[in-house]
Design a binder for these strands. Structure first.
Length: 513
RNA sequence: GCUCCCGUAGUCUAGUGGUCAAGGAUAGAGGCCUCUCGAGCCUCUGACGCGGGUUCAAAUCCCGCCGGGAGCACCA
């Protein structure tokens, strides 16, 4: 090596030529890494939402990673509603089910089957007596506070060592109503002094008398997440549980339970925590704002729900490639929404018609308006003729232009984009108008200004991602737009028609610039 | 505090001992094009957290440190 390095550059060049061509670049992996133990055609995945509200951008990773693996392995994708009774802070919502199913549809993900945990409670009960008789679990009747304290101190509760007849009798008492909410739970015997306090004789089932949105008061004993999944994952034939790394401890619990139950469960894989910088708000926080009426429903852009993104015109394919670009990395990341917008822009830009829009308009009063400009035809897209054109009527002789452009060009000659040049007066009149004089038609290198004919202009309000509203005027042709149609307001950004309030007042939602 | 996870450019990510004087995306800068401040094209800036090992060879393996995150419920 040293010998070669010592050679003069010319010699090296010669030497390089005489060598065989370098090996081809290492092949780059595309898509997600292979799943351990996965066989084509035999992979079964699950997406397990809690029906507390619409799906959030944070759920997108779970949806699309599982769906992508389904594609890769020609497998199955199940939706399994994780709708146990929850807690005071986390309650299943009746509308949560349809909200989520609709969001999945909007996401372009079609499940192979839909299951409800609330339909499977009997299966969860089924294993309890055996667990009790074999001494792998026990009924604990300590009050929650006592239990917590004992766990903290690594102390066993007195019921732990009672015989199996007593255990089974108490279990039946839980089911029959002899015990009330909070008076008895079933706990797994792991170890009271396990180094991880969360592992110390974890609770498997507990009593709740709350009404459930699907099954009402049919059950009073409800399983907890790890226990129910230890059974469901096996019985539903799930081969791979792929979820966020916030749930790794639950995996370990499931594994402990499989040992206790004598079952063999699926593989686990995780991804790290993803946060979109602009969407600091959580699903449950959104829920509060939606329910309290602070937000404009589940599609309020501040919720960052799937529905809100659809409302803004963020396409599901863009969300898909956005979240898949992070792969299965275990690092916790915070990503700017701009990355998502960039994906969406690639999809939107070539197919979205352009329209003129002016914020904070000032009326331009043109003296000696040239004849022959009764109307002007403009292409809908500068690079795609196939998108057609539209005609702007100029018969009124007045235009709106942005005040921002007026103020920096007072007294100067400006070009009205795609039209002609005018000389601006030196001051804006009190009625928010300004005079201008026609100068010439030739395209000159002077400031080019966006404009909208006053006659036929619509008033447009645009709902921004932060919940604020921008108002302005848009060209007449927008009146023909249909709900949900997208436009690029030139020099402003991509918008989607949200609501036509009246023939001259239209509401749009802003996607991104 | 305890348990676990993670540290590659501003932000993400590829990379699994030599093909890496580290690839891609996005953001940024400059230029070309364009009657949009959009898109497109070209160019540029910019990274292996730190310190020790192991090895002929380390972004990659080991140890320590530092930094970040998650979990620690009769929630999911």
């Amino acid at each position: 090596m040293d010998e070669v390095n010592a050679l003069p550059p010319e010699k090296l060049q010669e030497l390089a030529k005489s060598l065989p061509a370098p090996a081809p670049q290492r092949e780059e992996r595309t898509g997600l890494p292979p799943l351990p133990g996965a066989e084509k055609g035999k992979v079964v995945l699950r997406f397990a939402p809690f029906p507390s509200g619409a799906l959030h951008i944070g759920n997108a990773r779970g949806v699309y990673i599982n769906d992508e693996y389904r594609r890769m392995y020609d497998g199955k994708f199940y939706v399994v509603f994780d709708d146990t009774i929850g807690s005071v802070e986390k309650k299943p919502l009746k509308e949560g089910y349809s909200l989520i199913l609709n969001d999945l549809k909007a996401a372009g993900v079609d499940p192979d089957a839909i299951f409800y945990k609330s339909d499977r409670i009997e299966r969860h009960y089924h294993f309890v007596p055996d667990l009790l008789r074999s001494g792998k679990a026990y009924v604990c009747t300590c009050p929650a506070e006592k239990l917590r304290l004992n766990r903290e101190n690594g102390v066993a509760c007195p019921e732990r060592e009672k015989d199996s007849d007593w255990q089974v009798a108490q279990w039946e008492g839980m089911l029959s109503g002899q015990y009330r909410k909070g008076e008895a739970v079933v706990r797994l015997k792991t170890a009271v002094d396990h180094p991880n306090p969360a592992f110390r004789d974890r609770v498997l089932l507990r009593i709740s008398e709350d009404e459930h949105p699907r099954v009402g008061h049919k059950y009073r004993v409800w399983p907890l997440l790890e226990y129910s999944w230890a059974i469901d994952d096996v019985e539903l034939g799930i081969t791979h549980v792929i979820r966020g790394k916030d749930l790794v401890m639950e995996d370990q619990m499931e594994e402990a339970l499989w040992v206790a139950l004598g079952l063999k469960g699926p593989h686990f894989a995780h991804w790290g925590m993803l946060r979109v910088r602009e969407s600091k708000i959580s699903k449950s926080k959104s829920m509060q704002e939606v329910l309290s009426g602070q937000y404009d429903g589940w599609t309020d852009p501040r919720t960052w729900s799937f529905g809100s993104l659809e409302r803004r015109g963020i396409r599901s394919e863009a969300i898909r490639s956005f979240v898949l670009s992070f792969g299965m990395s275990l690092a916790d990341i915070e990503v700017p929404a701009e990355s998502l917008y960039s994906e969406n822009r690639k999809l939107l830009d070539p197919v979205t018609p352009r329209r003129a829009f002016v914020t904070d308009p000032i009326s331009l009063d043109i003296q000696s308006f040239p004849s022959g400009f009764g109307s002007v035809q403009l292409a809908n897209h500068p690079d795609h003729n196939e998108l057609g054109h539209r005609i702007l009527r100029l018969t009124g002789g007045r235009l709106y232009i942005p005040s921002k452009d007026v103020l920096i060009n007072l007294g100067k000659e400006i070009r009205l984009k795609d039209l002609f040049n005018v000389q601006l007066a030196t001051e804006v009149r009190s009625d928010r108008s300004i005079r201008a004089t026609f100068t010439s038609q030739s395209n000159k290198p002077i400031p080019r200004i966006q404009w909208v004919p006053t006659e036929g202009a619509i008033e447009a309000t645009i709902l921004m991602p932060d919940g604020s509203t921008v108002t302005g005027v848009g060209e007449e042709s927008l009146k023909k737009a249909s709900l949900g149609q997208m436009f690029q307001f030139e020099r402003f950004g991509f918008v989607k028609l949200d609501l036509t309030e009246s023939p001259s007042l239209m509401r749009f939602a802003f996607a991104h610039s």
